[in-house]
């Protein structure tokens, strides 16, 4: 029986890791009889099918040259393989466009494929906190979490039962996995859902960004503001990336206070519990999404002196060599 696995998100938890894995191991997957179509990719070498999502929802970012649903159909006709994988977290937004979901399904069902929808999800509270950390990392915000979250509340992600209902109502198998279940081993878990063996060189443990990574970024930006022009800043960033392995591992940056967490969870818990019920998952909310870990350091000063010294040494070397 031919099967199509369609990874639809959600945005945030581990998506980039899965994209990286598909890109790196595309040849390996091909040998296993898995096709990762060219149609709908954002770039020929990137196994990410955002363009399919844009095409299906009529997004102005759709680029016909990248190929949309029609191109996908043609490619499947030319490559009659047993397994196909699509991967894009833009597809999750089709949850409010049942017709678009049907259009995608038809491409596969006409060619004898059964569809399996695949979703990795984390609690809304954790998702919001993680998005904030990512935005801070990218320098897109310097607000505190409390200031930032008001403007970035996402009612769609806050109500996953409504967002994912349309996918579940198709009657296709629907695999819902939680961030806490996979413990950062997204690629390994993803391949196991596809029933594909892991390649020997699968790099999977998500390093994550510790509080020292953020301190390094802060130092780079402040130093550049004081001493460097834009080209110098880019050179310094590249140097820091080269030396990233020298920055000691550290606890994650904690962005959310216990009070905020409790308030947000109160608002969104019902929707998440409804989702678990719809998906037929018997685990409780806390079992599935994991309980929050609030024990992280309040300040880098709480980290071991040797780690801090190594961080500063690494920064100094990068800045001055």
């Amino acid at each position: 029986m031919k099967r199509a696995f369609i990874y639809i998100g959600a945005p945030g938890p581990g998506t980039q890791r899965i994209h990286d894995m598909l890109q790196k191991h595309e040849g390996f997957l091909k040998k296993q009889g898995v096709l990762c179509p060219q149609a709908g990719r954002v770039h020929p070498s990137a196994a990410v099918h955002h363009q399919l999502g844009y095409d299906l929802r009529g997004d102005t970012r759709f680029n016909p040259q990248a190929g949309g649903v029609d191109a996908l159909a043609r490619e499947l006709d030319l490559n009659p393989v047993e397994k196909v994988i699509l991967c894009s977290n833009t597809l999750i937004t089709l949850g409010f466009r049942p017709a678009a979901i049907q259009a995608l399904r038809e491409v596969f069902s006409r060619r004898g494929y059964d569809i399996t929808w695949l979703v990795y999800l984390r609690s809304y509270t954790e998702w919001l906190a993680s998005s904030y950390v990512e935005q801070r990392w990218m320098g897109l915000t310097h607000q505190t979490f409390e200031q930032w979250r008001t403007a970035h509340h996402n009612p769609v992600m806050a109500a996953p039962d409504k967002l994912l209902r349309a996918f579940m109502e198709t009657g296709d198998p629907f695999i819902l996995r939680s961030y806490s279940q996979v413990e950062h081993r997204f690629a390994e878990d993803f391949l196991s859902q596809l029933q594909v063996p892991c390649p020997d060189d699968l790099l999977d443990v998500l390093p994550g960004r510790g509080i020292l990574d953020f301190e390094m970024r802060r130092l780079v930006e402040e130093y550049a503001a004081l001493h460097l022009d834009e080209a110098g800043l880019n050179r310094l960033k590249a140097r820091v990336d080269q030396e990233a392995a020298r920055v000691p591992r550290s606890p994650r940056l904690k962005s959310i206070s216990s009070q905020d967490r409790a308030a947000l969870e109160k608002e969104t818990r019902a929707s998440q519990e409804a989702l678990l019920q719809m998906a037929g998952i018997s685990a409780s909310h806390d079992e599935f999404f994991g309980s929050a870990d609030d024990d992280g350091p309040q300040s880098i000063e709480e980290l071991p002196a040797a780690d801090l010294a190594e961080l500063y040494k690494t920064f100094f070397l990068c800045a001055t060599t």
């Binding site: 301190e215 402040e222 130093y223 004081l226 309040q298 880098i300 000063e301 040494k313 100094f316 800045a319």
Partner: peptide, 25 residues
């Protein structure tokens, strides 16, 4: 290294120009 970092964030005219190390946002 703290001393070196502080000096790195001393501007061309000898004034300290850095903020405190990262704390919980």
């Amino acid at each position: 290294y703290r001393a070196l970092i502080r000096l790195c964030f001393t501007d061309k005219f000898g004034a300290q120009a850095t903020s405190a190390p990262l704390t919980k946002p």
